[in-house]
Structure formats: structure tokens, C-alpha cells
Amino acid sequence: MASKSYMRVENVVKKFGPFTALDDVDLDIAPGEVHALLGDNGAGKSTLIKILSGVHQPTSGSIYVDDKKIFFRNPRDAAAAGIGTVYQDLAINQLMSVTRNFFMGRELTSTFGVLRMDEMDKIAHEEMKKIGIDFSDPSQAVGTMSGGQRQTLAIARAIYFGAKVLILDEPTSALGQKQQMEVLKTIKRVRARGDIAIIFITHNEIHSKLIADRYTFLALGKVIGAGTKKELAGEDIRRLMAGGAEMADLEQELSAI
């Protein structure tokens, strides 16, 4: 995996008042790669992806896209630079149809803002089919779809609207076993395209081992480990996931209670 990186994060620091959420974080994202971002609750994963997607602005440090230094003032800037974020809540509206969700905020219109509904139905159907689900009725409310399908909708949407970097915020955490596997398959299909970089945020060691090419571990706002799958042995991953604490320590502590 020697492919050229598409996005680079260098020495990013984010402070909320006196609280340092991120301290000197580096990240390297390359197309065709699944980059797993791991860490415990409160490690700063969410803050980092919010910076990458333009929701927060870094206190210091820089972000490069295609070797150009850029600054995201808002999510629109980030989207324009090809950063597509799929949040945990998926930014999907349950009462609205599949098509309306797919094009939410970016509807195809003719004069006077009139929707080109047939065209939108067709595109939504095709784009979702490409990465794995074939749904029968584009006017179906999203509330009637399964969790895995919703995830696919959100991913297909981000890709269709030009995401070069796809940020997936714990895409498997709220799903059942079978649907988790479906989402992982979807991620694999997106990876196979080769032109999209995926940042995969997860708690789940097994999931990350199944599909990730590269890892970055965060703990208490700092990067405590990074590398490719080969560079990190399985034991290392587990140790880093636990926030760097030795598993042995943990076992001792547990048995002492």
C-alpha cells in the first residue's frame, strides 16, 4: 500500500476552553485504503472527524488535501473538498422517502426549484444498487428500512456527491450481527473502486482487523500508535485499543475487585 496520500493531517490541536480534546495529531489518508481510527470513548475520535468534516476548526495545525493546505470553515467547505462524512445517526430523516433523503439539501431541480423527481428516483436506485442493495420503491419512507440499508443509503449518497474521503463514524456499532457483516461488505465494495479513501471509526477490534489496511490509535487526545496491518501484530492492536494500558494490568485490576 504505497499509494500516494490524498489527505494529510499535521500537528492538529483542538482546545475547547481549558480542555485539550486533540493534541498534536497526525493522520495520512490514501485512496483505496481503509484507515481504521480506533480509541476508547473520549479519546478524541469524534473531535477529529468533526475537524475533518468542517464542523469544528482546529486550534492549530494544518490539513492538506492533494498537497494543498486548506481550511474548512464549515461542512460545506469540507464537502466541496471531497470529504463525505457518514455520522452515527446517518443524517437521515426517517419520515422522508429514500429519494428525498438521498438528495437532501442537494436536490436536482429545474427552474423555480421544481424537483426532477423521476431522475432523482432513478439515480438513487442505481447508486444504491451499485454498492449492494436493491430496494423496490424509492418513495418508501426510510423509517421502514433496516439499519444496514440506511447505512448503505448514507454511504451511497456520500459517494454520489463526490466524496473522495469517506468518513464512517462507527457504522457497525448499532447493528445486529448479520447487518454488521453487510456494512463491512459495503465498505469492501467501496474500497474495491480504488479511488476512495475510507476512514473507519470503530470500537470493534474484529471489524477493524477484517477490513482495515492501516490503523491509527487515539488515547486521551493523542496518537498512541499508527501503522499498516503488517506493521502491527494482533497483540499490539488489542493493547492499543485498550488505550495503551497493558492488558495484564487490566486483568490484575479486575481480579483485585
Binding site: 461542512p75 445517526d89 437521515i92 430523516n93 422522508m96 428525498r100 437532501m104 439539501g105
Partner: peptide, 15 residues
């Protein structure tokens, strides 16, 4: 519709 359904997700999508 998007605003009333879930305004946070609508906002995240640029509405």
C-alpha cells in the same frame, strides 16, 4: 420536510 423531521441531519446535509 427535512427541517421538521430532524433539523440536525437536515443541517448536516446542507439544508
Amino acid at each position: 420536510y427535512a427541517t421538521g423531521d430532524n433539523k440536525e441531519s437536515a443541517r448536516a446535509n446542507g439544508v
